[in-house]
Amino acid sequence: MRIELNVNGTVHEIEVEPRTTLLDCLRDRLDLKGAHAGCEHGVCGACTVLFDGAAVRSCLMFAAQATGSAITTIEGVTPGPGELSPIQDAFCETHGLQCGYCTPAMIMAAHALLAGNPAPTREEIVEAISGNICRCTGYAQIVEAIALAAERMRGVNRPRSLTE
């Protein structure tokens, strides 16, 4: 069937089987490889994307269902080739990742959190990423990355000293 998908601000017309999940469609048809398949049954969260601004699991939705909504993937929050968003940069700063497989999804969950809550507590960060399983890090440096990103994003318009 023919569907229209609005991904990262671009509308694509694609022919898909109804059974094609949004995840498979993004990866296989639009070549957006940043969302990953970890379990394909909605538990690990490695496929998280933003769906009308909310973090959702793209393996738990068929592509056909997404027509009419705006989808944002990790490729859509990366400012440009070689450039990082404050959240992505904070993950590098704290080393909030190791193998990188869950990372794009973790960053999407962080985006969804910080969009609605610029100053989350540790507990709120822990809750916001609790649906994203990371097997490498034990989460500590991920939580720190999100807290650091929040702090930096809050401070973005703050006057700074010359040495800062």
Binding site: K33, G34, F91, C92, L97, G100, Y101, P104
Partner: peptide
């Protein structure tokens, strides 16, 4: 120091076998 591999992963640009 930062871990140099991290840059590609935070951008979803790892090169995994399924890619």
């Amino acid at each position: 120091r930062r871990v140099r591999e991290d840059r590609r992963f935070v951008a979803g640009k790892g090169h995994f076998v399924a890619d």
